[in-house]
């Protein structure tokens, strides 16, 4: 099955981001394909490279960046990002800023869209 993911909550503050990541790992392990991951609302905070958590905790933006390195399309909504100060300068590698049209494309090209939010 081809799946896309919508992340609506920021890192650490809410479980949605971790749940999305764990869901993706489980889906990939079962042989499903991830067409793309779209970060919206406070979800855009997931992908700042300025993030610097304690070393014994998970590094959420690095995790997303590593997923992007495998070829999964990682997109941050430009309108939501502008509102919150997430720009190309602070973006983690393998992630791009684009418009909500990319979410429409992901939906069009996937069998399922799974939303992780509050």
């Amino acid at each position: 099955m081809i799946i896309s993911i919508l992340v609506l909550e920021g890192p650490y503050n809410h479980e949605a981001s971790d749940s999305a990541y764990n869901f993706i790992q489980a889906a990939l392990a079962k042989g499903h394909a991830i067409r793309g991951i779209f970060f919206y609302d406070d979800g855009v905070y997931n992908v700042t490279r300025l993030m610097d958590p304690p070393q014994d905790d998970r590094h959420i933006s690095r995790r997303w960046s590593e997923l992007g390195a495998t070829g999964i399309d990682m997109v941050v909504c430009i309108a939501a990002a502008k509102r919150r100060g997430i720009t190309n300068e602070v973006l983690a590698p393998n992630i791009r800023i684009s418009g909500l049209g990319q979410l429409a494309s992901m939906i069009h090209e996937s069998d399922r869209i799974v939303t992780f939010g509050d």
Binding site: Y40, D41, A80, L100, G101, L103, D118
Partner: peptide, 17 residues
């Protein structure tokens, strides 16, 4: 949530769906 969902509606309405 509601505010940004409206932005999604506006954009989606311009796509073939």
């Amino acid at each position: 949530y509601v505010q940004e969902s409206i932005e999604v509606m506006f954009i989606f309405a311009t796509y073939e769906m």
